Simulated scan of single mutants.
Amino acid sequence: MEQKQWGVYVHIPFCRQKCFYCDFPSFAGRERYMKEYIRALCQEIEVRGSSYVRRWGNPATIYIGGGTPSALPAALMEQLLLAIGNVFCIAGEEVEFTVECNPGTVDAAYLAMMHAHGVNRLSFGVQSFDDELLRRIGRIHTGEQAVQAAVMARAVGFSNISIDLMYGLPGQSMAELKAGVEQALSLQPAHISIYGLQLEEGTAFARLQEMGKLDLPTDEDTEAMYDYMTEVLPANGYERYEISNFARPGFASRHNLSYWQDLPYLGLGAAAHSYLEGQRWEAETEIPAYIDLIKSGQSPFKLEEPATRAIAMEEFAFLALRTTAGISRQRFEQKFGCSFDSVYQQAVQRLCDKGFLVDDGDAVYLTKLGMKYGNWAFEEFLLF
């Protein structure tokens, strides 16, 4: 058996309500499929999960995302966790086992059940603690529910808790943002993620923007929000390890780091993506079609268009640059069989001259300014 560092992603495509900014493959009003979906998903975990355990050993990380995994009734979540536990060894803290949760869908009993079945990390999609702002962006929880969810999680035994916050939201003021950050810090989570609003095609917010009905902060205000968050979080003990992610020492998300470090992962469930042996795969997105494929013993996955060598180099660079560790020259050469400088020397020099990049000889990584204007920096790593 080849021992390999790899991860598992499990997709739950259900939501109580679709957030107005969300373009993820998730669906509201499909609860009628939940039982059949979990049955099919457990079957896929048994077949495909077992296959990779036999080949590579146990995964280092497991991540249940969505959608809203905690929208599953407790009995179905328990069924899923039992199936995962039957295939993957999840005892102790060796495997980082994360579940995404909406604060409005959990209670103490639900959280305790997950903890009892090996989940050791929770990621709460809080976004804001301001009730009016939450309503405006389509979230189903309140600020008080977010506070209570974190308190309950700690009470039932979770020490690794992450909170997501958003900035640049419609009608959001700097005062509201600061109040939210202060509330998050008071809860002392191990990890905080910050995301600026992106208007994605096909979302409710994108349609409102097209109609001129979306009251967004100015670019200057959004930039000030970003500057505030990237200064106050490190000042309070949260080390920045990726453009949008901050953690107390020892609590960086190992699963997300595996994406940025070009490590393989197995995706399970409808719309899940896999990255295996240098190839990217995508599962059937529609829930009924996914269930039918699993029932009939067919693979729900199709191979995405194979990446050219140039695209593979670009992806490697983009992903690594998101982290504070940056691009390792040694890892680049090991993967592509050529020196990093033979491909990117001029791009690196241009970015260093602009103050966007640091080159220490072993690696190149973004400066604080480079992280702020990451998209401009990434453009330099495109190979035409």
Rank of each mutant, 00 (worst) to 15 (best):
D227W: 08
W376H: 14
R39H: 14
M225H: 09
G180F: 08
R350V: 08
F336Q: 07
F384M: 09
P306N: 06
D262W: 09
Q127K: 07
S342C: 11
K4H: 09
M225Q: 13
I291P: 04
V8Q: 03
F381A: 03
G66Y: 07
F332S: 01
E201K: 15
Q17Y: 11
E201D: 15
V8I: 03
A150L: 15
M211C: 11
G297C: 02
Y9F: 05
N160Q: 10
G196I: 07
R331N: 09
I243M: 07
W260M: 00
F378R: 02
A320N: 14
E380P: 03
E231H: 14
L177Y: 01
F158S: 12
Q5L: 14
I62M: 00
F14K: 07
D23H: 11
I294N: 06
Y110D: 01
G29L: 10
A108F: 05
V126N: 07
Q279W: 14
P69H: 09
G267F: 01
A60V: 12
A155D: 13
F251M: 12
L268W: 01
L111R: 02
G269M: 01
I12F: 03
L76E: 14
T367D: 05
C352P: 04
M113N: 02
V99H: 10
I194T: 10
L133M: 12
L187N: 01
E2K: 15
V156A: 03
K354S: 12
D359P: 08
C22R: 06
G92M: 09
N58L: 06
G212H: 06
K4A: 07
L169A: 05
A150R: 08
A71Q: 11
A75N: 15
Y275V: 01
A153E: 03
S258E: 10
F336I: 07
M313Q: 13
G202R: 08
R121G: 04
F318V: 01
E242V: 03
A320P: 07
Y195D: 05
Y52K: 05
F356P: 02
D359Q: 07
N375Q: 06
G171C: 00
F14P: 08
K368A: 15
I38W: 07
A74Q: 15
E220T: 06
G171R: 00
Q198D: 13
Y241H: 10
E379Q: 13
F246R: 02
A247S: 12
W376D: 14
H115I: 00
E182L: 13
A271G: 05
S339P: 04
V181D: 00
A91Q: 14
G337L: 05
A28Y: 11
E36F: 08
M34G: 08
A310V: 12
Y265L: 02
M371K: 11
F340D: 01
A190S: 13
I287G: 03
R309L: 12
K35A: 15
K178V: 11
A146H: 04
C15M: 07
L82I: 15
F158A: 09
T142D: 00
L321Y: 05
A155E: 14
S299D: 11
L214M: 08
W281R: 09
L357H: 08
N236Y: 11
I84M: 13
M225W: 08
F340T: 01
Q183A: 12
A150K: 06
P170W: 03
G168P: 03
Y167R: 02
V126A: 09
W6I: 02
Q330R: 13
